[in-house]
Design a protein around this nucleic acid. Structure first.
Lengths: 333, 333
DNA sequence: CCGGGTTACTTACACGAGTAACCAAGAAGG
DNA sequence: CCTTCTTGGTTACTCGTGTAAGTAACCCGG
């Protein structure tokens, strides 16, 4: 049908219809306190804006103002567990309360520099990275130079110029491995998802587990796996050869998959092999055997939103508590 | 640390450093074919842009051009199942191939009109709604008037002025109910998630199931449930009173939760009650009993991206195939 | 020495909105 | 009557970018 793109309605159109100047329209629609407008013309303007269906042009506005109310969250949706995705939605509403518009961008760029430049083009007020890697020094430079006021990240350690919520994936690996070792396990496997985008979380966890092995008599083996039935089944069928007696399964979803195929392959859990997951999803407690897992205590969305607001407005914010991993012991390990 | 926000670098800065006019900078950086620039100055400009770390200002650019390369996808992240979230990520990369920047916006607005206006402010080139309700007639009007060129939606039936991928949630309910009835079940429960944002999908499914009941001897009861262990367990404990012999569980995740609590409560599946899920997740086949579910064949992300591109450029696009629900029969029903 | 063509670059304006500075008219005060 | 203040509006400039139109320099044929 492609009706000819009727030129979008601007504040000039509203002004013409209301019979006033464009400035007056702006004063009315923004409730500018510094200028008095008679009740009569105010009504005329509002009526005109309404009948024309006027919507301000965010680009024009932010060009003039030199800032906008965008908060950019670079993150692949499919890489978020249930935990994080719920948290992200909450953050959206919290930020809206402050007048910000949060947007997610899931773009996968080959080059991290390209990614940073793409984000910088939007000139968001803030960038909040949910993985530890995408906000590296170079990216920080690009974003700062583009005038982004607030940078925040979940990262294993503070980055210069970035307000970090410390989240040490390494600690997660340490915690899992320590528990397995404490249960008397010595040959520990760490499941590494093949799905792209997850390596950033998985690698440090593996490293953490390795560090535990280094100071005990245990060994750690890397176990690659895809989140498909076929890949998991193949893994389970060759299980005996690996000779593992403990596994840290990246997260509860991979753990659930693993439990299912191990059961089908006749491998006993926790008898033959102990399994630890991560995230403490609703379903973790309902697995049989009930899944031992690691819960992550993330600072509330409201708190993070407040910190972002402070960061944008004043340039500093009260430090946020770290993400604390806590082992939840059940039956599987 | 709050280093004083060093004014962002503009193309004028680049021009000054390179000793040329701003226009020349623009010609070089955009590879404008219509204008010839000597190799020497081209190099100077590129060098200057590089040392300054220049990044164009998307707002200014789109203001001038009258259009931008944004594709807005309004959708709550937590409401997406694994199926859709993977698809969304793919769509991001496909759209990037055409030069578009896709962004997700998860804002929950009380008023749908407010939502449409918030999207319109960004003046995206396209809006792709993943639920059937958010792009209603009013929203279409607002967006069209704001100059949004392409509107696309997954919706139960074509909406005037919107390129729809027909996805009839009602059909899903019909399919599930028909299967249960064919298995001899007569008292069917439909699990309705209490989580906000899911009603848009759940209600039509319930309606579909009801329509099947209306033309058979079966009855359909609404079963509200939250995605928590507590809520599910409460449901399972009072199961006998409900007297249901078949359940359609909204999706595979709710189904998995339900299977677990029913098992704990000693209710036999499929003996006492047959259970049907939806989405055909990886874990569905691994439940015990293996979950009978409904798979949704969604048009490929590449295809949708191409259609969006056509829609933005030419105003029309070849119609996309509908999302086809297919029953995958396993053990649970 | 002049008109015509190229090449390489610049000047000037437009996009849509916000806002400082200005201005006309009427009221109040002397 | 002349100043000063208030009220209610307007004009003019700005943000950073793209691009149409203009121009200066040079070469060439006649």
């Amino acid at each position: 049908m492609a009706r000819k793109a009727a030129a979008a309605v601007t504040s000039a159109d509203v002004a013409r219809l209301a019979g006033v100047s464009r400035a007056t329209v702006s004063f009315v629609l923004n409730n500018t306190q510094a200028h008095r407008v008679s009740e009569a013309t105010r009504a005329k303007v509002l009526a005109a804006a309404d009948t024309l269906g006027y919507v301000p042009h965010a680009a024009a506005r932010s060009l003039r103002a030199g800032r906008n109310n965008l908060v950019l969250i670079p993150a692949a949706v499919s890489a978020m567990g249930r935990l994080v995705s719920g948290w992200t939605d909450d953050l959206h509403t919290e930020l809206e309360r402050y007048g910000y518009t949060a947007v997610l961008h899931a773009g996968r760029f080959s080059d991290p520099g390209t990614a940073a430049r793409a984000w910088a083009e939007l000139r968001p007020g803030a960038v909040l990275a949910l993985d530890g890697t995408s906000l590296d020094g170079a990216a920080v430079n690009v974003l700062r130079r583009a005038g982004v006021r607030a940078l925040m990240a979940l990262a294993p350690q503070p980055v210069e110029g970035v307000c970090t919520v410390v989240f040490d994936d390494r600690r997660v690996g340490v915690l899992a491995a320590e528990h397995l070792v404490a249960q008397g396990r010595r040959r520990i496997g760490v499941v590494m998802p093949r799905e792209r985008g997850l390596a950033a979380f998985a690698e440090p966890r593996l490293a953490g587990a390795r560090s535990v092995a280094a100071r005990t008599t245990a060994t750690v083996a890397r176990v690659d796996m895809e989140y498909t039935h076929a890949s998991a089944a193949e893994l389970a069928n060759g299980w005996a050869e690996r000779g593992l007696d403990g596994v840290f399964a990246y997260n509860d979803e991979y753990a659930a998959l693993l439990l299912a195929v191990l059961r089908d392959a006749g491998v006993g859990v926790p008898g033959d092999v102990a399994v630890v997951g991560c995230d403490d999803l609703v379903t973790a407690a309902l697995q049989r055997p009930a899944l031992t897992t690691i819960r992550l205590e993330v600072p509330s969305a409201a708190r993070v939103a407040a910190a972002l607001h402070d960061l944008i407005e004043t340039g500093t914010a009260a430090p946020l508590p770290a993400v604390e991993p806590v082992l939840v012991r059940r039956e599987s390990a």
